[in-house]
Amino acid sequence: MSNLKTTLTGYASYRGREGHYSFLLHRITGLGTALFLIIHILDTSFVYFLPDLYQHAINLYRSTLFGIAEVGLVFCVFFHGVNGLRVAFFDLIAPRLWSVPRQRFSTKITLLITLLMWVPASAIMLYNMLYHNFGWFGG
């Protein structure tokens, strides 16, 4: 138990600014995506194992609660992907370019690219949700 406490207090109290926040966000978004992925593989496999239940699973995903969660999931995947590409670039291609100022700058660029992808994507997803679940825009 003390290991858990040490790790968690370390996560919370370490003052590594941008690099630390991006490390934490990378872990949280990765874990969130992985947990969803387990459920998603199983629900999609219903098409073969339990085709009668597939529509029930999809109806759940169409609900407003899951619609909001979907917007969050898309943020998780976009951030994790863009940040992962940043990490892979510095680790595999250009380890020599690694410097603290550059990490701070590239972390901010990562967040900016994520938002540029996520904001229009969520606008469309929210439009779809309002159209189908609330009858807006003539739905």
Partner: peptide, 26 residues
């Protein structure tokens, strides 16, 4: 990760944004 960028981003943009869960069924 490098391989998953096009695969996962493509999957997400196509299924969640362009098609949307309301048009997905058996």
């Amino acid at each position: 990760a490098v391989l998953l960028i096009p695969l996962v981003f493509g999957h997400l943009i196509l299924q969640d944004v362009i098609v949307g869960v309301h048009r997905i069924d058996l």
